[in-house]
Design a protein around this nucleic acid. Structure first.
Length: 506
RNA sequence: GCGGCCGUCGUCUAGCCUGGCUAAGACGUCAGCCUUCCAAGCUGAAGAUCCCGGGUUCGAAUCCCGGCGGCCGCACCA
């Protein structure tokens, strides 16, 4: 299965088994919003946990949880208000809509028109006599599209408020206190998992482009005079596929394959700090089940980059359904944000070096779209076996870690199975008890939601209290004492043991 | 926003062209029986605003118009 068919199969499975589905369906639906069900919520949580394990915990970075709604002055200072809008024009004859700045660039041969501001765009449209490139018709007056959601804070319409389009500003606004809590030493990072909103013109492709979604962001603060990242050596031998800015500009399609060490040396990646997180990023995505050959990093061209970034690499993953899609952005934000907030707020955000000099830290930011990762994990795991569906999710992110079932529903087998189920739950595992239908059907149901292990209570269990463990991917079985399951299954789920080590083969 | 395609139980589909019984089937779900390891079988049950609104007609899931929603392409994705 490939292409759209695969996407449709996953969307159907997601709805049928309760991973996710479109929101507001009883009111006719609304594009760009999805609701997670039980399995989807668990899968999402497990991916969050994995992210912390790779990005936050190893260096003791600090996590924050900051407001979604922000007052106007935050996004005025950050530049979002200025840059998060597009000026559009419509052809009065054929009704096609264009971005005004792109039109001017093409028709008048200018560059970076967006940065010139709205007034300049209006003026240029008039001065250059620009017409519709498709049909030559007259164009409408330029109109603004603000892609941030706006509301009023306070019941009587007090202050304009905006839903954040990224979580990062929360980290910059709280930099001072965060820095203090990190014992005032660089480098350190503030991280956040949270909802953000973007009023996309055209949300599409299920979880891949939403109007409200969850982002996992980390802002690493470092001294720009300190070029060496102390952790970089851990990943410098990691090889990555790169499409550099130059390659992008010249239209190269085949990526360069280099180690991160070489990429920094050659100047493809501007700082070790950013390169470090690109290496972690690759390992993280591999951990979610995406093979390295289906990953690459693609540089943004200057006009494609966000206003705050001086270098951005998108981490892309290859999907059978949609081709290469972006799942993370690695941006070098320099001191852009701290400088902006320092200026707008009047609060000193500089920190002190050992020699007494003061400076604004620089920032590199890895930023993941969690919902996209949920979809990617599902699609990459999706298999067909003998006409049945198997979700070969890595066991550490599987929503249900084990299913306990009696071989038949009589002779005391269900009772014993329920006891084992209870023990495993008490041991902190996410376990389901299942007795509907035949044993084969139950295995198939569990395969379809990616449960890695099935525990079956049979007649021998009544004699010697051993059970069979059945592997989702190979269908092999081993036998083990019930009392040892909590310990063994926990280490299996964590990846500390392989299936063969769980018992005697059958 | 433009263009193309589409919208029927939880899911997948039949019916629509050529208007006419209580909208059919499979899967799933529920109850019961059966069942000693890979979606077995039997009996019964529940489950559909046929996307919404209007029009045509004696009669609309079916024809017409409008809207909403979805998918794809273009544009957009800071």
């Amino acid at each position: 299965m490939e292409g759209r068919e695969l996407h449709e199969a996953i969307m159907e499975l997601a709805r049928r088994r309760g991973f996710f589905w479109p929101s507001f369906e009883i009111y006719g639906g609304l594009r760009g919003f999805y609701t997670y069900g039980n399995l989807g919520t668990k899968l999402k949580r497990n991916i969050e946990k994995a992210w912390r394990r790779f990005f936050v915990d190893p260096h003791g970075f600090l996590e924050l949880d900051t407001p979604v709604l922000n007052p106007l002055r935050v996004f005025k200072a950050s530049g979002h208000l200025e840059h998060f809008k597009d000026v559009m024009v419509e052809c009065l004859k054929c009704h096609r809509v264009f971005r005004a700045d792109h039109l001017i660039e093409e028709e008048a041969g200018l560059e970076y028109v967006e940065a010139m501001g709205e007034e300049a765009i209006r003026r240029l449209l008039r001065e250059k006599g620009i017409r519709c490139p498709e049909c030559g018709g007259d164009l409408s007056e330029p109109q603004e599209f603000l892609t941030m959601f706006q509301t009023q804070i306070g019941p009587m319409g007090g202050e304009p408020g905006f839903a954040r389009p990224e979580a990062a500003q929360g980290m910059f606004l709280n930099f001072k206190l965060g820095f203090h809590h990190a014992r005032e030493r660089l480098p350190f990072a503030l991280a956040q998992i949270g909802k953000v909103m973007r009023n996309e013109i055209s949300p599409r492709r299920g979880l891949l482009r939403l109007r409200e979604f969850t982002i996992m962001e980390l802002e690493l603060f470092f001294d720009p005079q300190e070029g060496q990242c102390p952790w970089f050596k851990e990943v410098s031998d990691e090889s990555v596929k790169l499409i550099t800015e130059e390659m992008e500009a010249e239209g190269f399609k085949e990526p360069l394959e280099v180690t991160l060490g070489e990429a920094v040396e050659s100047g493809y990646i501007k700082t070790e700090w950013q390169a470090y997180f690109m290496g972690v990023s690759k390992r993280f995505i591999t951990y979610l089940g995406v093979p390295p050959e289906r990953q690459r990093f693609r540089a943004h061209l200057p006009e494609e980059r966000s206003h705050y970034s001086t270098q951005t690499y998108d981490h892309e993953v290859y999907l059978e359904s949609w081709g290469w899609i972006e799942i993370a952005g690695h941006a070098y934000r320099t001191d852009y944000d701290l400088k902006a907030h320092q200026k707008a707020s009047g609060v000193d955000l500089t920190v002190r070096r050992a020699d007494g000099s003061r400076f604004l830290p620089h920032v590199v930011e890895p930023s993941f779209g969690l919902d996209r990762l949920v979809y990617v994990a599902l699609e990459v795991a999706y298999r067909k076996r003998d006409g049945r569906t198997v979700l070969a999710l890595p066991r550490w992110i599987a929503p249900i870690q084990a299913a306990v079932m009696p071989l038949v529903t009589r002779d005391g087998l269900p009772e014993r199975a329920r006891e084992i189920w209870s023990q495993l739950k008490d041991a902190g595992l996410t376990v389901e008890y299942e007795e509907k239908g035949s044993i084969g059907k139950r295995y198939a149901r569990q395969d379809e939601i990616g449960t890695p292990i099935a525990v079956t209570v049979d007649y021998q269990t009544l004699e010697d209290d051993t059970v069979t463990l059945r592997d989702r991917d190979s269908w092999r079985q081993v036998r083990q004492e019930a009392s040892r399951l909590p310990e063994l299954l926990r280490s299996y789920i964590n990846g500390e043991r392989e299936f063969d080590e769980l018992g005697r083969p059958l």
